[in-house]
Computed example of a mutant assay.
Amino acid sequence: MKSFRIQPPDQSLRAALQTKIDNKTKPLGALGRLEALALQIGLIQGTSTPTLHAPHMLIFAGDHGIAAEGVSAYPQEVTWQMVMNFLQGGAAINVFSKQHQLQLYVVDAGVNYDFPENLPGLLSHKIAKGTQNFLHEQAMKIEAAQRCIDQGAEVVTSIFNKGCNVVGFGEMGIGNTSSASMLMSGLLNIPIDQCTGRGTGLDDERLHHKIDILTKAQQRHGALASPLELLATFGGFEIAQMVGAMLQAAEHKMIILVDGFIVSAAFLVAHAIDPNLKSYGVFCHRSQEQGHAHMMRALDVQPLLDLGMRLGEGTGAAMAYPLLASAVAFLNEMASFESAHVSEKNS
């Protein structure tokens, strides 16, 4: 598995950046969280004049063996059908990516389907046609998890080499809220029933069934020693590839747009591997999945948006991207008190 060298942002510029923000023609702090966002972006890029170049949205897709246990309201074939919908431009993430000029790619990390070759917008990094059923065995071997991390890193390096410095993450995979719940429960030591939500829209009876299945799976596998072992036992190929992609993005000093529940679970795993990752993450929206609030508290972060969304696909990340553009724009273009000849607040 590739090793990553993630350097925390250099803090020597913090005071100058904060002074620049404070001296804009506004009361101190009047732009609220946009000011913190501008500071974060400036620190990531190591400059008081940051820019956003070639923003990309990556949707990682994979199937899950646990779907055979009826933990989703939809059948497994919806995974590949939605991938085709993405490629044909018909999904919500397509609409928002087009609106905000985000270059969109779908990564086949392990979908249970043979896609035609050379489909525009599809990056083929298939590990296998879905994971194993973790109720009965590991979802994947450790070696497969390591390969996923390498593949995800490769995807991000390819867009970085095209000039991209901000990347959003989305996902598609029937059953992947179950994987995300298991990962967060293991990493945060939170009971599985507090980590499990309705996913694609389960009713009360099927939600109880889902919790029962995940509880049995947790009991079967017992305590796990490392983030990589936890990822291999309960993860999906798409989640594992996002882990590698995020770590690589941070190594390249890229801004990472973190979507909702499943993407945040991948971030949790990557953060457990290297805590320096956190400085590069912008948490875009609060998912309605109940476990997401626990994740945000554990990471001590506050998502930018709270719109009652729970779609996935990276839609929350795409919706939040204009806020980054606004943060950069005010930092670079808004006049200072001095340049505008405006009197400052009385001391």
Rank of each mutant, 00 (worst) to 15 (best):
L299Q: 13
P50C: 02
D22Q: 07
L187C: 05
N165F: 08
R14D: 12
A270W: 03
T79K: 00
Q18E: 11
S185Q: 02
P120C: 05
E338Q: 12
I213Y: 12
A250R: 15
Q103V: 12
Q81L: 13
A15E: 15
L230P: 15
R198L: 06
L207K: 02
G29T: 10
I127V: 15
L257W: 04
M57S: 10
S3T: 12
K126P: 07
G197N: 03
G32S: 06
G186M: 07
A293C: 08
I262L: 08
L257S: 02
H56I: 09
L202C: 08
A320S: 08
I59P: 02
G32T: 01
A265N: 00
L52Q: 12
C195I: 14
A266V: 06
L187F: 06
K24S: 07
G168W: 05
Q45A: 00
R14M: 01
V328M: 05
L304F: 00
S279N: 12
C148Q: 03
E171D: 09
M334Q: 10
L202I: 12
G168A: 09
Q18S: 06
F330Q: 12
T157L: 01
I142N: 08
N118F: 03
A317V: 10
L52H: 14
V78Y: 11
M296D: 04
P227S: 00
A250V: 05
F60G: 09
Q151N: 15
I44K: 14
K129P: 08
G235A: 06
D259K: 07
N176A: 09
G308Y: 11
E289A: 14
M309L: 15
A266D: 00
E344R: 06
G170C: 13
A109W: 00
K98L: 06
H252S: 09
A67F: 09
G62E: 11
H209E: 01
A92Y: 06
L39R: 10
A225Y: 03
F115I: 05
H136V: 04
L52P: 15
L119N: 05
P9I: 06
M242Q: 04
S124V: 11
K126T: 14
N112K: 09
P50M: 04
G62H: 05
G173N: 06
S343W: 04
T51K: 05
S179Q: 06
L87G: 11
E171K: 04
F115N: 09
L135C: 12
T79R: 00
H64C: 03
T47Q: 07
A54V: 09
K162Q: 14
G130T: 02
G197D: 03
A318I: 10
